[in-house]
Write a protein that binds this DNA or RNA. Sequence first.
DNA 1: AATTGCGGTTGACATTCGTCACCTGCGCGG
DNA 2: CCGCGCAGGTGACGAATGTCAACCGCAATT
Lengths: 200, 200
Amino acid sequence: MIRVLLAEDQAMVRGALSALLRLEPDMDVVASAADGQEAWRLIEQHAPDVVVTDIEMPGLTGLELAQRVRERGAACKVVIVTTFARPGYLRRALEAGVVGYLLKDAPAEQLADALRKVHRGGRVVDPQLAVDAWSEADPLNDRERQVLRLAGEGLSAGEVAAQLHLSQGTVRNYLSEAIGKLGVGNRIEAYRLARQKGWL
Amino acid sequence: MIRVLLAEDQAMVRGALSALLRLEPDMDVVASAADGQEAWRLIEQHAPDVVVTDIEMPGLTGLELAQRVRERGAACKVVIVTTFARPGYLRRALEAGVVGYLLKDAPAEQLADALRKVHRGGRVVDPQLAVDAWSEADPLNDRERQVLRLAGEGLSAGEVAAQLHLSQGTVRNYLSEAIGKLGVGNRIEAYRLARQKGWL
DNA sequence: AATTGCGGTTGACATTCGTCACCTGCGCGG
DNA sequence: CCGCGCAGGTGACGAATGTCAACCGCAATT
C-alpha cells in the first residue's frame, strides 16, 4: 500500500486527483493540503511514502517544500505535478532532491504509474522537459532576480530600492544588467522572458 | 442518469475530474475533449445533458464553445469550470447562455451538486464572483485595449504605433488615458490590472 | 453656415529608464 | 601588508515615458 499526500492549491483539482488515486487499489491518499505550510505539517504527522505537490502555491511553494523535506530528512519521496514546463523549475526541483516531475498535460493514467515507480526507488521526469532543462542556465544572480520580480509588478526603480534597502541607482544597474544578460530591450520583456523560463 | 461531457486541456486534470464524476452513481461521463473543437464534435455525436468546460483552451475557448452550443441550438447545458475569477469572463459566459460558472478553487464536492442542480434547470454561479461581475464595467475603449495589450508585451510606444499605424504621440496618449482610467501609475500596472479583471 | 463632438496629431515639459564609467568599502588569499 | 574581487553607490547623458493643452479634419447636428 502506497501512502500518498497531496498538495495542490486548487480545491477542485485536489479533490479530483484524490478521487483518481483512490481508484487505484494499491494507493491510499492519507491527507491533502492546500498549501506548502499545511503540507509540511501533514507530512510530519502522517509520514507518507510519497508527496505529490504542485509548484505554485501560496506561502510555501512546492519547490521550497521539497527542499524542506530534504533538509529535515523526512523519509518521503517528492513528486512535482505542475502546469509549468519551465526548465528552471525542473532544474531547481532536481536540485531539491525531487524524484518525479510530471506535467498536468500528461495523461492521467501516468500519475499512478509514476508514483509506483518512484515508490520502488525510481525516477520519473517528463522526457521532453529533461532535454531543455540543461540546455540553458539561468544567467541571473539573486539580486537581479529580486529586482526583476518587483519591477515586473510595476514598481518603479525608487519603489524597488525602498523595498530592498538599496539605492535607486543600484536598482537601475541591476535592471540594466538583467536586460543585457537576457538580450532584450526593456524591463518588461526581461520580466516576461525570465518568468517564462522559470527563472522568476 | 446525467450524461456529462468534459472539455479541459490539461490531460491529467481531465482524467482526474472524470474519475471524480464517475464516483457519483447518477453521473456518466460519456466523453472528454482536450479542446473546444473536439468538444463540439463530441457534443454533436453524443448529445450529452451537460457540458463541463474550462475557458482557456487551444483553438476554441470554452466561451466560444458555449456560444456555439447556443447558436446551433444543441440541447445541453454548459457549465464553466475555470481557474480565472475574472469578472469579464463571467459576464461573457452569462451572455453566451452558460448556466453554471464554478472556480477550480471551489471544493470538489460542489461540482457534482452543481451539475445536478443545473440538470434540474437551475443556475449555479460562484457567489463571490457574481457581485464583482456587475459592479465594475470595463472602462477601456477599443484603442486603449489594443495599445495596452501590445505595451504589456514589452513593445515601446514607437513599436506599438508602427503596428497599429498610429503616431507615437497618439499611442502615448492612449496609454496615459488607460493608466488614468485604471487609477494606476504606469503601463505595467495598467496591463496587469486590466488582464486580471479579464478586460485584456 | 455655424456648432458640436470625436478620433487622431503635435509639441512641450518633467520624470523615469537604460547605459556607462568610475568610486567606495570590505573580506580573503597570498 | 598588499592586491584582488565583489557588492553596492554615484553621477551624468540620452532615450523613452507620462501628462497636458492645443490643434486638425470630418461627420452629424441645429
